[in-house]
Design a protein around this nucleic acid. Structure first.
Length: 580
DNA sequence: TTAGGGTTAG
């Protein structure tokens, strides 16, 4: 665990801090740096020292709140010693809301004083930034540390890679690579143990590769982690399943489970089966997903051989699928490698059993429901809900009790099937009876149902219930949905009013909000107003991305009223912007 | 510290 800087009892941490401060000294002698002299000239010297020691005293007394109060009450106050600055940031990052730590960083940066911070404080800040959802800041902090020759703690870069991955998986992979390179370049003896990657760190990077669809890097990392003594665990294998799913390698799924059981000796976890069900659902193979869920309900331990046998049956009866992408073929290699590095004495058992039973939980069932929904099998969605409630009541599998996500999935399926009344009945009926509260997403789905059914009065009534009776704050999706409802009912002014209401609530419009508002004006035959909205989107301070749909909407607005020349001009404007 | 169910446009 990273030290918060308050105790420093761990000798390794001490060693680490000493090393990093000597590195800093080499780079930036505090007295000679122009930044430092500027800071010193802005405040009388004795005051600065006094304030610094007052701050340090509070921090040493573990009164982080008081220290922050002192810091924030005086905008000119800047900790001038590395100890105070690092300690302030470390303690705020460790046990306070991140916005406080961010303020300290902001002020230090504005005064060019980031070099006061030691590796421990920067690592804690990066981890806190990642935890609070600020992936960009966490990313910059880790890169800054690398540039300064400091070693980020593994928890810091693991959290950062994980937080970057969903939106920018390639960036996440690059960051992890940069960290590995940095560690390698410094030689192992110098690197503090807490900075070396562990299985969790590699898992975060593997997951980023899976998100990026980067099979070849995935394979390298899989090998590299083992070279570094980090054995893949069940999470690694779950990510492997996800990678197979992304690359269309349905054929590998039974082999992954088999390899983990027989050759690597890794016990699956509940999520392994969830991942498998999700993968099969993604392939549209509901029958196999059902087989797994049914086997889980029966408490069977032979799921691995069940899948292998099923796979063998299917291969003989169906023609081979389209040729496998070359990079995806690398995954075969990994399974072979598992074989060669695994326990050679252990016999490959065709009827390998799971170490325990894995009863299905609400997540597994909800994933199966998604499969039914995709196949428009609404009766099976409802049957699954009934089965879950029955199972939970008979207490065989309390984990299968439907929760708010399950109910939202059911309501979503009913809405997709065009049955809003039934969807509403689930909200007021089963959901209420089970004491499962609806959340914003549930309401958003139902609102979409009413809007698509052109029942705007009902939509507005539900919107009011959501806000007033249940105190659920709307979000940008809520407003986009309602605005779209207005467009569908030719209510241009209504759409505009909602757009403004959203902004007055402090909710930032998204690209979809702008496009929907443009759609309203386009439908009303007002291309110029649509164009104004487009300009607003381009100059939005929250920097929404003007995407293809927005350009298309603008072109359509002019085409609708027969202004083809203006539409052409827009196209010419678009062409250089998109390089076509 | 990593995986894994539910929502918005064109």
């Amino acid at each position: 665990m990273m030290s918060c800087g308050t105790a420093c009892s761990c000798s390794l941490q001490m060693q680490f801090q000493q090393r990093s401060s000597s590195a800093r000294q080499k780079k930036l002698p505090a007295a000679a740096s122009p930044a430092a002299s500027r800071i010193c000239s802005s405040i009388p010297e004795h005051d600065e020292e006094e304030e610094d020691s007052a701050l340090l005293a509070l921090l040493r007394a573990h009164d982080t709140d008081a220290a922050f109060a002192l810091f924030s009450s005086n905008p000119d106050l800047l900790p001038c010693s590395p100890t105070t600055a690092s300690r302030l940031l470390a303690q705020l990052s460790f046990n306070s809301s991140f916005s406080r730590a961010a303020l300290v960083l902001q002020r230090l940066r504005a005064r060019n004083a980031l070099s006061l911070l030691d590796a421990n404080a920067l690592s804690l800040a990066a981890a806190a930034a990642a935890r609070s959802g600020n992936a960009t800041l966490a990313h910059s902090l880790i890169l800054y540390m690398l540039r300064q020759g400091l070693f980020p703690d593994r928890r810091a870069y693991t959290a950062t890679v994980a937080r970057l991955s969903p939106a920018s998986p390639r960036k996440a992979v690059r960051l992890f690579d940069a960290v590995l390179r940095h560690l390698r370049d410094r030689g192992e003896l110098e690197v503090p143990l807490s900075c070396l990657p562990d299985t969790a760190a590699f898992n975060a990077a593997l997951n980023a590769c899976a998100d990026a669809g980067d099979c070849s890097r995935f394979r390298q990392l899989w090998l590299e982690m083992q070279e570094q003594g980090c054995a893949p665990d069940s999470v690694s294998y779950n990510i492997f399943i996800k990678m197979c799913a992304r690359l269309g390698r349905k054929d590998l799924l039974p082999r992954v489970l088999h390899s983990m059981l027989s050759l690597a000796g890794v016990a699956p976890c509940a999520t392994t089966f969830h991942s498998l069900v999700a993968a099969y659902v993604g392939f549209g193979d509901i029958a196999t997903a059902e087989t797994i869920v049914q086997a889980m309900r029966e408490g069977r331990k032979d799921i691995s051989s069940l899948l292998l046998l099923r796979d063998a049956d299917v291969s003989t009866t169906t023609t081979q699928e389209a040729t496998v992408d070359q990079s995806a073929a690398l995954l075969d290699d990994i399974l072979l490698l598992v074989k060669s590095t695994g326990n050679q004495d252990q016999e490959v058992h065709p009827n390998l059993l799971l170490p325990q039973a894995y009863p299905p939980n609400a997540r597994v069932y909800t994933t199966l429901m998604k499969g039914y929904m995709n196949a428009a099998r609404i009766h099976d969605v409802l049957a699954t809900l009934r089965a879950m409630r029955r199972e939970a009541q008979t207490t065989t599998f309390p984990a299968s009790r439907p929760d708010h996500v399950t109910y939202t999935a059911v309501i979503s399926a009913l809405v997709a099937a065009g049955d809003v009344d039934r969807a509403r009945a689930v909200l007021d009926g089963e959901m209420a009876a089970d004491g499962v509260p609806a959340n914003r997403v549930t309401y958003n789905v139902l609102l979409k149902g009413y809007c698509h059914n052109l029942q705007m009065a009902k939509a507005r009534e539900l919107f009011a219930t959501m806000l007033e009776t249940n105190n659920i704050e709307p979000d940008v999706v809520t407003y986009n949905t309602l605005m779209d409802g207005c467009v569908l009912t030719d209510d241009t002014q209504g759409a505009l009013a909602l757009f403004n209401e959203m902004r007055s609530r402090g909710i930032a419009p998204s690209t979809v909000s702008y496009t929907t508002l443009m759609k309203a004006f386009a439908a009303a035959g007002q291309p110029k107003t649509a164009h104004k909205v487009f300009h607003q989107m381009q100059s939005d301070p929250t920097r929404v991305k003007v995407d293809r749909a927005a350009w298309n909407m603008l072109i359509e607005a002019y085409c609708r009223v027969g202004q083809l020349e203006t539409a052409k001009q827009v196209v010419f404007e678009l062409v250089p912007a998109h390089g076509r």
